[in-house]
């Protein structure tokens, strides 16, 4: 991922013209994982690798692992639970986040 180049509190001289954001896809530097109160856990044994969790995730927080299976990108997952609800083989369960 390209480095984040922008200052969230720029001086008026630093601010790009018209406060245009010159770098694409910078919200990747804004982690939404801490919104979560439940965490999806994928049972790789049950998973049939259909990919529906990856399709339905509103946050693009399901990663395709090299072996073709799927796991959760906890940096962005907001814990909505759609993946668990929609998994045709119920391979995903929602586990409450607890302070460690």
């Amino acid at each position: 991922m390209e480095k984040f180049k922008l200052n969230p509190k720029p001086t008026w001289k630093e601010l790009p013209i018209a406060s245009m954001i010159p770098q694409p896809a910078t919200s990747r530097f804004y982690k939404t994982g801490d919104w979560r109160s439940f965490r999806p856990v994928v049972d790789k044994e049950k998973c049939t690798r259909c990919g529906l969790c990856w399709v339905y995730c509103p946050d693009g927080a399901i990663r395709i692992v090299e072996d073709g299976s799927y796991d959760v990108d906890l940096d962005y997952c907001k814990g909505c639970g759609i993946c668990a609800e929609e998994c045709p083989v119920k391979a995903i369960s929602m586990v409450e986040e607890v302070e460690e």
Partner: peptide, 20 residues
Amino acid sequence: HPTTWGPIGLPDVQTELKRQ
């Protein structure tokens, strides 16, 4: 060269935008 124009103007940036 994808740029994002007209982002939502949070209080942190609006004054600088107007000064510009």
